[in-house]
């Protein structure tokens, strides 16, 4: 990646953006695999139990982690409060569907998603100004504080949210009036996967645009980015708002597919888990959150079956080892192996 042709810097930058935006074969493979999962675990093959509800949940988690990736992996904002927007989206979609009695305008799942994105995005926009100031620690505490306030609100406003019991009986009307949510999660999985892909495609376009490049510049050095004319604050507000909206969509997905919303969806451990998932998978690749979510839930299932409540220990251990020994999570690890395998390891 050295500047071998300094004579054409402008074309170089454009070419780099374009080459980065091209779809690779492994990306196609990833999405094909996601579609294949539907047929493997969708009760089409005898002997393999239906796991589509679990897979839908993974998608929702992965989407939340993806939203953190935009903020953390690209813009470099350390956040412990993304769960606030997730929970907000879940409650918005849940309340709409519940009060709509399963009929068109309010209970329509797509309208629910849009409303959740709008409300969470608005909340993200308002709180983004708090995140602009201060160091990593201040940002950490402000995002955490906002999430705690929202969680407390959800817990206290019993008349609206059902308090600690959460919202029950969230029934969405059929998607586009055609596909109803079934008990086995066939609709839920396809629906979640399509929503995930749309959000992912959008995020991918954004990070490979000049806007995304300026975010990376801010992450690298905010002071220098400002010096070369990047409007740092405006960019951070924009990406934080967008990420909040995506987190809201993720929450709405979970509320609609599990047909409930609870304080658990907005609690601290949701934010922490999502951050862990992202770092586990690898931040700054977009796929990190998705791969991390799959591994996280599979690990939770496997270890949870052996030692029901002590899986937290193994999660903690993995985290500690990851920080100490591995850079860039699972994807970073695989990238390292791949480079060594193909001898592309660039020695500077």
């Amino acid at each position: 990646m050295s500047m071998t042709q300094p004579t054409k810097p402008v074309n170089d930058a454009g070419a780099r953006l374009l080459s980065g935006a091209r779809w690779r074969w492994y990306e196609v493979l990833f999405w094909v695999a996601a579609i294949a999962l539907f047929f493997v675990f969708g009760d089409f093959i005898p002997g393999i139990p239906t796991r589509l509800m679990l897979l839908s949940e993974i998608i929702s988690l992965g989407l939340l982690a993806l939203s953190i990736d935009l903020v953390l992996g690209y813009a470099g904002i350390v956040t412990l409060g993304q769960g606030a927007f997730f929970g907000l989206g879940a409650y918005v979609a849940g309340l709409m569907a519940k009060n709509g009695m399963g009929a068109f305008p309010l209970s329509d799942p797509l309208l629910g998603l849009l409303a959740a994105a709008a409300v969470s995005g608005a909340a993200g926009f308002v709180t983004s100004f708090l995140v602009l100031r201060g160091s990593d620690l201040t940002r950490l505490m402000v995002t955490l504080g906002v999430a705690l306030i929202l969680a407390e609100l959800a817990n206290q406003m019993r008349w609206l949210t059902g308090g600690a019991d959460g919202l029950q009986g969230v029934m969405s009307s059929p998607i586009l009036g055609i596909w109803d949510f079934d008990l086995w999660g066939h609709t839920a999985y396809v629906y979640s996967l399509v929503v995930l892909f749309v959000c992912f495609w959008l995020s991918r376009r954004i990070v490979h645009s000049t806007f995304g490049l300026s975010l990376k510049a801010i992450k690298g050095n905010a002071l220098r980015a400002r010096a070369i004319g990047v409007p740092v604050n405006a960019r951070l507000v924009a990406i934080y708002t967008l990420a909040a909206a995506i987190a809201g969509i993720a929450g709405a997905l979970l509320a609609q597919t599990t047909q409930s919303a609870s304080p658990d969806m907005i609690a601290f451990h949701r934010s922490a888990d999502a951050l862990l998932i992202l770092v586990f998978g690898g931040a700054g690749y977009l796929y990190g959150g998705l791969i991390g979510a799959v591994l996280f839930r599979v690990m939770q299932d496997v270890i949870g079956n052996i030692t029901l409540q002590y899986w937290q220990f193994w999660l903690g251990l993995v985290l500690v080892l990851l920080v100490l020994f591995v850079r860039g999570g699972v994807i970073g690890l695989m990238e390292g192996w791949w480079n060594r395998l193909t001898r592309k390891g660039d020695a500077p």
């Binding site: 862990l276 251990l317 993995v318």
Partner: peptide, 10 residues
């Protein structure tokens, strides 16, 4: 942050 949260979990 991640490291110390990992320690807390353990």
């Amino acid at each position: 942050v991640l490291f110390s949260i990992g320690l807390v979990f353990m």
